[in-house]
């Protein structure tokens, strides 16, 4: 399988602060990879390095086989990488349709409008809640709908690798399930996923593999099953008391 994203020995930080130390990570075609870790472990920083928002101090970043270290974020979108950032960052004063069309910004003028409209339809099939609300101001959507819009906007660039930062944050359980269902289906549509989740249970459920990040280092990696059964992971991220339920969920 082709590697859609690969980080080799990435060290990165802000100012005098080193957040990531010598991180290796890869996401292959057809995978959903979970990135687990406590607050401040460096998960969002890792996504920022992968999407070009933050230049690593050392190490290499590869997207779809091409060395993109140091490329700015706006250029990486054209290489097939999309990053749905923390707190969604939808364009709240613009309409739902404008948000989705902005997602396809790099395709305008290069592809026929019909191809973009086709993907608009694809996103509305994934998130039927957004249908018929194209003219609504995005800021007036509910939190869950805004998250759907943020993911939909990311998909509009037709990415081959999607980075998702805490998509379940602050959402009702039903909405989390809805979004997880969509994420799990993305690899089939040709889009691999790197998923940062506080909700480790939901994260591992939809993932094929995972990494555990602690204070800027990768301390564990393995298949979702392996991580789900790892005593330390269970204790730290899955909550010991809900052990039985999580084991059942993982073995499904």
């Amino acid at each position: 399988m082709d590697e859609m994203l690969r980080l080799d020995g990435v060290t990165a930080g802000y100012g005098g602060l080193t957040v990531l130390r010598d991180v290796d990570l890869s996401v292959r075609e057809g995978e959903v990879v979970a990135l687990l870790g406590a607050n401040g472990a460096g998960k969002s920083t890792l996504l920022a390095v992968a999407s070009g928002l933050l230049r690593p101090r050392s190490g290499r970043v590869r997207v779809d086989g091409v060395d993109v270290t140091g490329w700015p974020a706006e250029r990486l979108v054209r290489r097939g990488l999309a990053h749905v950032p923390e707190r969604r960052r939808i364009f709240g004063s613009m309409t739902v349709l404008e948000n989705l069309l902005l997602g396809a910004h790099v395709r305008f003028g290069r592809e026929p409008r019909a191809a973009i409209d086709l993907d608009l339809e694809r996103v509305l099939l994934l998130f039927p809640q957004l249908r018929g609300r194209g003219e609504q101001i995005a800021g007036s959507l509910s939190g869950g709908e805004q998250q759907m819009l943020a993911i939909g906007r990311g998909l509009m660039s037709r990415p081959r690798i999607l980075l998702l930062d805490e998509p379940s944050l602050g959402l009702a359980p039903l909405m989390v399930r809805e979004i997880c269902r969509v994420i799990a289906g993305l690899p089939e549509q040709g889009c691999a996923v790197l998923l940062v989740e506080q909700n480790a249970r939901a994260g591992l459920e939809v993932s094929t593999r995972g990494y555990v990040l602690e204070v800027g280092r990768v301390v564990k990696e393995g298949t979702a099953c392996q991580l789900g059964e790892d005593p330390e992971v269970r204790e730290a991220y899955l909550g010991a008391r809900r052990e039985a339920r999580s084991a059942a969920a993982v073995s499904r």
Partner: peptide
Amino acid sequence: RALRACAADLVAARLVGV
């Protein structure tokens, strides 16, 4: 639309390729 996106949120605008 891209100009307005920059005005609204520069980081989000860059992440969609503006």
